[in-house]
Design a protein around this nucleic acid. Sequence first.
DNA 1: TAAAAAATCATACTTTGGTATGACTCCCAT
DNA 2: ATGGGAGTCATACCAAAGTATGATTTTTTA
Lengths: 153, 153
Amino acid sequence: MPAVINKSFFLHAFGYGVAMALLVLLLRWLEIRFFIFDHTTEIYVGGIALIFTGLGMWLAHQLTRPKEIVVEKITYVEKQEINPLAIETTGLSKRELEILDMMARGMSNQEIGDALFISLSTVKTHVASIFSKLQAVRRTQAVEIAKSLKIIA
Amino acid sequence: MPAVINKSFFLHAFGYGVAMALLVLLLRWLEIRFFIFDHTTEIYVGGIALIFTGLGMWLAHQLTRPKEIVVEKITYVEKQEINPLAIETTGLSKRELEILDMMARGMSNQEIGDALFISLSTVKTHVASIFSKLQAVRRTQAVEIAKSLKIIA
DNA sequence: TAAAAAATCATACTTTGGTATGACTCCCAT
DNA sequence: ATGGGAGTCATACCAAAGTATGATTTTTTA
């Protein structure tokens, strides 16, 4: 709506201009009818008026145009954020999430176990649980799913 | 802004009315001077031109007064683009890159072989070559390295 | 055209990954 | 207090992944 306001305003303003011109012409015409003046001068003057009105508008437009432009730059950076809601949905526990993250970094089960001071068996159990919850059958697949779900970065 | 448009429009309309009245008076005055004091037509026309130029400029000014703000929204989206130069550096062949991409999508060696109509052995050979070139020892690691190098998306 | 690089396949072997099952402890919530 | 979830560990087995080596064919390139 606000976009067409100016347009309608312009139409109204133009309408006023036209109305004014018509009124002047009407007055002139009435005058002519009484005093029998030179028609050509009136028409000539009317044309001059119209032309210079347009010229004035164009001039003003040319003069004020650079001032009207306000540039607002908005920068959106798509972050690789995690989605806590998605984590809730999958039902992954804190430990599982931790191990999933380490898997995504290319660590082996043994390395994960060593880093977390837990046995390889435990890691395997967690991994199996992760696969189950993410409906994956391979760790690379689990990582891919997790990333697509924004569970991990 | 849109709420005050109608109000300001009426003010403008009133302004137009006053302007019209003044204009008519001015024209009358010029006319009187033209006929009574017998000035040249050039002066009359020149006056008309000046007046209507001013009118046009005023009109244009009125039209552009609600300072139309041009909002230029520039959106930067950080794309996960691939870096061809990095691929060059690693020396990965076209086939290896293809297989690396499939690995990243969680596919097994067998699945990759089936998809590319090549044997499991060939896939393994390619995978081994990929690991060597990316200095990885596991596929999850290779994928992580490849992604960090922007070799794959 | 000959050498190099890429792509293919195979066989044998080791390592890691993944599945299944069962069990133990701890915590907290009904 | 007790059942259930979370975390832990183990054993056993099979599948998949990864390593090593060698070979053939195709394609590229110097």
